[in-house]
Design a protein around this nucleic acid. Structure first.
Length: 699
RNA sequence: AGCGGGAUGGGAUAGCCAGGAGAUUCCGGCGGGCUCAUAACCCGCAGAUCGGUAGUUCAAAUCUACCUCCCGCUACCA
């Protein structure tokens, strides 16, 4: 789009709604901080911008969890909503409006939009099979039901095949349905539901994606869906919790959560207008007339924002989004973030450790590209903070301002040199480009590289040597440095607003650096300012060790809990089995096979003598071990479920029996090329007791 | 099975969409400088078959095809 930011028309930046169902962690923060930084950067460019979001209150998980806690869904969700609203400002994530999907604005707007879609002929009614629990006398939407995936045959939830092919499942698709509430077998009943004719938008969406800005994954991923043929979308559910379906024939239906959730973007903007006035910001102009809509989301909800949502907007006569920027996930120490295993850095925890929010903001926005998955570790965090924020930015700020203060009581009374002026202009250009590329890392780099230039500049010119003999040149150098310091502050504000503001105040500037525009980076700072202080503090090694230990302990404790839980469930069985095993009670043995096979059949099986070369556990798997087995001709990598049953260190050197022509398989991402033979629950390894050589066939 | 992301000097990353002298930045190593500054900062050096193979091209890290390996989501059954 040639229509670069800043545009004549106002912009709205949104970020994916946090689902009111659990604590916030760094994975969430990456999206909200990213959106916040982007919105701030737009404003620095002089773009009229609103940054809005809200809590996602509806849907079955909230209803289910509320039920388990014995509270009303609304109260349950509101509690989380309140917590989110409190937490965001602590990370300097400042929404112009933060609402929730259950409030009046969103409820009304959602119903209005659905009504419009209906009137425009995009909504139709269809009888579908809905799972129904006859004992509990209720219908079972989405995750209230589980069963078998019709596509791959795996166990699946009502709304998606979570364990198998990952397909999104429409209501009525799951086979062998069972109620998750009662565990009862469910039956399918005919039930009239409302459908949104997404399929009619295929051509529109293809064109829409061609012009969509943001990250490439958001543009490419949905194309596959369109090529495969779009399915119409069931937009109603048999539930109490949600927004009532507004049209005829759906009196006891509520809207599917993904209908009203994105509409909160509009509703939240509307609330903002209602608060500040239409002259200040006009939500209708942005959403209906002309405006720049930018969605910052996690990469797990791309389809909703690039298929369903733009189709809804188009069908209801609203503007299409200009950009969808989808962030990658966060891993912790190289492993997947797991809330159930407590392998996560929680928002609350980070704050309790006493770290400044801007440090995490900087880390999350400048480590890796926006759509890249990013690893978080306290070591990397320390390295980035100490190296870039303390060493480069903080140090430059401090040495420049301190020198200026001591020798000139502020900004030396002279003009900025041409070279430095140009260098700052270059950084401004770099920033402008970064924003238009939705590249937050580059945004940060524009600032830190300028600070680095400042360090080189002061070093090269050595003003401390000039003050006596060449006072004018010294003043010039410091004048330049103070200007660079100020420019770095303006450029860094979107990412580290608090620290930038602190610098602003040290420079004796009035007002807020957040209100400054890029051009202000070239305006002279006040003539006088007070003695500056250090704005960034080093993180010591001891501190990092401590944090790593805490994290490790926590993760260990969580997996212990899990094991305990599992043990508790099966403990009696295990004990019984152990005793039975030693007594070889035939009642516990698998019955002998009745069917006989021919010798030819046995010939199909290629069993060899092997020697285990190495054995190591597989990360993340409790039982699986990766073995390298020498079978004479070659060494095979085999995955075996023996990790907990054997001392892996003792295995290398042991002979074993290996089924060599077993089909290859991949377990936990590790290829298994063969199968080790073992007996019984304890996986007692089969071996030879004579001098059979490695590679010899067993017959 | 599947889907997505990745493979670039010791480690971590950029560049790839819009091909053009074998490449960015950070950390680490080695050597030097400076002392205004938070043992900080500045300069220099070492180090790479840009995962593999084939192809398109005058030219490929960059495009195409295939392959190998890694990581995440799902799976503990080999």
């Amino acid at each position: 789009m040639s229509n670069d930011f800043p545009t004549e028309t106002p912009a709205v930046v949104t970020c994916g709604l946090p689902y009111a169902n659990g604590d916030l962690h760094v994975g969430h923060l990456r999206t909200y901080v990213g959106g916040d930084a982007f919105a701030r950067a737009l404003e620095t460019l002089g773009q009229e911008t609103a940054y809005v979001s809200g809590s996602d209150m509806h849907g079955t998980p909230v209803a289910v969890n509320a039920e388990q806690e014995g509270v009303e869904p609304e109260d349950f969700a509101l509690e989380w909503h309140d917590q989110y609203e409190e937490t965001f400002p602590k990370f300097n994530v400042e929404f112009d409006n933060y609402g929730h999907t259950h409030d009046e604005t969103n409820t009304e707007l959602t119903q209005e939009i659905v009504r419009t879609l209906d009137e425009e002929g995009y909504v139709y009614e269809k009888e579908i099979q809905v799972a129904y629990d006859p004992d509990a006398d209720q219908y079972l939407p989405d995750r209230y039901v589980e069963g078998t995936c019709p596509y791959c045959g795996e166990k699946a939830r009502g709304d998606e095949c979570d364990e198998g092919c990952q397909r999104h499942l429409e209501p009525g698709e799951v086979e062998d349905p069972r109620s998750t509430i009662t565990g009862n077998d469910a039956e399918y009943r005919e039930r009239a539901h409302k459908f949104f004719a997404v399929s009619e938008f295929a051509d529109y969406l293809t064109e829409f994606l061609d012009g969509l800005e943001g990250t490439s994954n958001a543009r490419n991923q949905p194309r596959q869906w369109i090529e495969d043929g779009l399915q119409d979308w069931c937009i109603t559910r048999d539930m109490d919790w949600g927004i009532d379906y507004p049209g005829e024939g759906g009196e006891d239906l509520v809207l599917y959560v993904w209908v009203d959730a994105p509409i909160e973007y509009i509703a939240s903007t509307k609330q903002y207008t209602e608060r500040v006035g239409r002259d200040e910001y006009d939500w209708e102009q942005v959403w209906k007339d002309e405006g720049e809509i930018v969605h910052i989301i996690g990469r797990d909800i791309i389809q909703h924002h690039t298929i369903f949502w733009p189709a809804m907007l188009e069908g209801a006569g609203y503007n299409a989004p200009r950009a969808v920027a989808a962030t990658g996930f966060i891993t912790i120490n190289g492993k997947g973030l797991s809330t159930s295993r407590n392998r996560a850095i929680w928002a609350k925890e980070y704050l309790e450790e006493g770290f400044h929010p801007d440090l995490l903001r900087y880390y999350l926005t400048t480590t890796g590209g926006l759509q890249q998955d990013v690893d978080f570790s306290w070591d990397a965090f320390q390295e980035k903070v100490n190296g870039e924020l303390v060493g480069t930015v903080g140090n430059f700020w401090y040495r420049s301002l301190l020198f200026a203060y001591r020798n000139y009581e502020g900004t030396p009374d002279t003009d900025v040199s041409e070279d430095v002026q140009e260098r700052i202009e270059g950084a401004i250009g770099q920033t402008r480009e970064a924003v238009n590329d939705y590249d937050l890392r580059e945004l940060g780099r524009a600032a830190t590289q300028l600070a680095q230039f400042g360090n080189e500049y002061i070093q090269r010119n050595e003003p401390w040597k000039l003050t006596d003999d060449e006072p004018e040149r010294a003043a010039q150098v410091i004048r330049d440095c103070v200007q660079i310091a100020k420019a770095v502050g303006v450029l860094l504000e979107p990412i580290a607003p608090d620290k930038a503001q602190a610098l602003w105040e040290q420079l004796g500037e009035d007002g807020a650096v957040a209100d400054a525009h890029l051009e202000d980076a070239l305006e002279a700072p006040p003539r006088n300012f007070d003695e500056p202080g250090e704005l960034f503090e080093k993180i010591e090694d001891d501190r990092v060790d401590e944090l790593n230990e805490k994290l490790a302990e926590r993760v260990a404790a969580a997996s212990d809990d899990e094991d305990d839980g599992a043990d508790a469930e099966t403990e009696s069985d295990d004990t019984a089995a152990d005793e039975a095993g030693s007594m070889a009670d035939t009642d516990d043995l698998e019955p002998l096979a009745d069917e006989r096979i021919e010798f030819e059949d046995f010939q199909d099986v290629d069993i060899r003598v092997g020697r285990i070369e190495s054995a190591e556990g597989i990360e993340g798997a409790d039982d699986l071990a990766r073995l390298e087995v020498d079978i004479g001709f070659e060494t095979r990598q085999v995955v075996a479920g023996i990790k907990q049953l054997h001392d892996l260190e003792e295995l290398p050197g042991e002979k074993c029996i290996l089924l060599a022509n077993m089909a290859k398989a991949e377990l936990f991402g590790v290829e298994s090329n063969g199968m080790i033979l073992a007996a019984g629950e304890e996986a007692d390894l089969l071996t030879t007791h004579g001098d059979a050589e490695v590679g010899e066939k067993v017959r």
